[in-house]
């Protein structure tokens, strides 16, 4: 077996918020991504999906202090245990991130060329002419039309879709082995979203880039991610191959999430099955299953005993006392019919 590019083992993260609260956000999170593979992480707000990305990168909000235990292995080397200089080195050459909103992640007063090449100029000096040329090449590789002119532009002169492509170009410039994409298309129109995801797919395949695609939209992962990890209350509650997780979910939360998505295909539902209640408050200690208060299958044991890992199939697991049986009817009448 080859070493995964990213191997997160039993990661726990506690954040000390500026108001003094202690938030235990990630609980025993384990996941791995191979070269050229896309792993989708899906979760609602407060599920811990963004904290996971920040913990891997080792960057947290300035006003908070985070403590992590467990292992974050990048090509077998533990980022959490590495000395600061080694860590910076590993991160700088190994991991790149694409953010949700390119308008806020790009510096408004710095030309595109300088931002796209930043990960290169951090390491060695690049003469201005070469910097512009390199930037134009990087922009062309992400399908930015007229790249030579765009390299001299400022972020506000570009559309949202182009700005996100600039963000991707900047992420790919350092030739990383792992790309973290946190809601990369949430701020984009649906037709632009499609082209940006296609672009990420293409670079994943041609460069053998391991990709962690974080989203709240489980539909977006279909046909993109080979595997999905579903997060709830800071835990991976279900993980497995995308088709299995979306068509035969074992965890009641995944099933409820799939049911509540409004769809353009399938039978018309005038009333959407909502999930009652709210996600758990992470500042309070939690025993048992985090989803238990909202779960229609929950029994007394769910509130007190942490759920066991249920094997729903090869490489398909769910942490649940009462998982859905594989032969149970499909959730939400998942219709495979296409639009005409």
């Amino acid at each position: 077996m080859t070493t995964p590019v990213l191997d997160v083992r039993s990661l726990d993260t506690v954040i000390h918020a500026p108001d003094g609260r202690r938030l235990h956000i990630l609980h025993d999170v384990s996941l791995h991504i191979d070269a050229g593979e896309c792993l989708g992480v899906v979760g609602e707000s407060g599920s811990g999906k963004s904290v996971l990305a920040r913990t891997v990168l080792g960057v947290h909000a300035r006003t908070t202090r985070a403590e992590s235990t467990g292992q974050v292995l990048l090509n077998g080397e533990d980022l959490l245990a590495a000395a600061p200089a080694r860590r910076a080195d590993l991160l700088g050459t190994g991991i790149a991130m694409v953010h949700q909103d390119p308008m806020t992640s790009l510096n408004p007063v710095v030309r595109i060329a300088d931002q796209v090449t930043e990960s290169l100029t951090n390491r060695r000096r690049l003469p201005r002419r070469e910097r512009l040329r390199t930037a134009a090449e990087l922009l062309a590789a992400v399908d930015v039309p007229d790249p030579v002119r765009r390299a001299r532009a400022y972020p506000h002169e570009l559309s949202g879709g182009l700005r996100q492509r600039v963000g991707i170009a900047a992420a790919l410039a350092g030739d990383p082995v792992l790309l973290l994409a946190d809601e990369p298309t949430t701020a984009l129109d649906v037709t632009v979203q499609r082209t940006v995801l296609d672009l990420l797919d293409r670079h994943r395949a041609t460069r053998g880039l391991a990709t962690l695609l974080i989203t709240h939209d489980i539909g977006l992962l279909y046909g993109r991610a080979r595997r999905i990890a579903v997060m709830y209350g800071g835990r991976v509650v279900e993980s497995g191959p995308t088709e299995q997780v979306t068509e035969r979910p074992a965890h009641p939360y995944t099933a409820a999430l799939l049911r509540s998505v409004p769809r353009v295909t399938g039978p018309l539902r005038r009333v959407l099955p909502a999930i009652p209640g709210s996600p758990p408050d992470l500042s309070r200690p939690l025993t048992g299953c985090p989803f238990a208060p909202r779960c229609d299958r929950a029994e007394a044991v769910c509130a007190t005993v942490a759920p066991p890992v249920h094997r729903a199939g090869p490489a398909h697991t769910a942490s649940c006392h009462f998982p859905l049986a594989a032969e149970a009817p499909r959730p939400s009448q998942t219709s495979l019919e296409r639009t005409p």
Partner: peptide, 13 residues
């Protein structure tokens, strides 16, 4: 617009 909507169980159009 319709073809661009990502949805579980629906092939990318």
């Amino acid at each position: 617009l319709l073809a661009a909507v990502p949805e579980p169980g629906r092939p990318l159009g």
